[in-house]
Simulated assay, not measured.
Amino acid sequence: MWFVFALFTAIFASLRDLVSKQALQRIGDEYIITWSSRFLALPFFLPLLFYQFSQQPPTWDASLAGTIFIVLVLQVISNIFYFRAIKLSDLSITVPMISFTPLFLLATSPLIVGEFPGKWDILGMLLIVGGSYILKIRNQEQGYLAPLKALFRENGPRFMLAVAIFWSFLSTLNKLGVEQSSPILWAALNSTVLATAMTPIMLYKSQHNLKLIPKNIGYLFAVGLFQGLTVLCFMQAVKLTLVAEVVSVKRTSILFSALFGHLFLQEPGIQERLTGATIMLVGVVIITLL
Rank of each mutant, 00 (worst) to 15 (best):
L91Y: 07
L91T: 10
L91P: 10
L91N: 11
T94S: 15
V95P: 04
V95N: 04
P96A: 07
P96I: 10
M97V: 10
M97G: 03
I98P: 12
L103W: 06
F104R: 09
L105W: 02
L106Y: 08
L106P: 04
T108I: 00
P110Y: 02
L111G: 12
L111I: 14
V113P: 03
G114L: 12
E115F: 00
F116Q: 11
W120V: 12
W120D: 12
I122G: 03
L123T: 10
G124F: 06
M125W: 08
M125T: 15
L126R: 02
L126K: 00
L127H: 06
G130N: 00
G130I: 01
G131C: 03
S132A: 13
S132Y: 01
L135P: 04
L135N: 11
L135C: 09
I137E: 07
R138V: 11
N139I: 11
E141A: 11
Q142C: 05
Q142P: 03
G143V: 01
Y144N: 09
Y144H: 08
P147I: 07
L148W: 10
A150V: 08
F152S: 06
F152G: 09
N155Y: 15
G156W: 09
G156F: 11
P157V: 05
P157L: 03
R158C: 14
M160T: 01
L161A: 08
L161Y: 03
L161Q: 02
A162W: 05
V163H: 04
I165H: 07
F166Q: 07
W167M: 07
S168W: 04
F169A: 06
L170D: 03
S171N: 11
T172W: 00
T172Q: 01
L173S: 08
Q180W: 06
L185M: 14
L185S: 05
W186P: 12
W186R: 13
L189W: 00
N190F: 14
S191F: 06
T192S: 15
T192F: 15
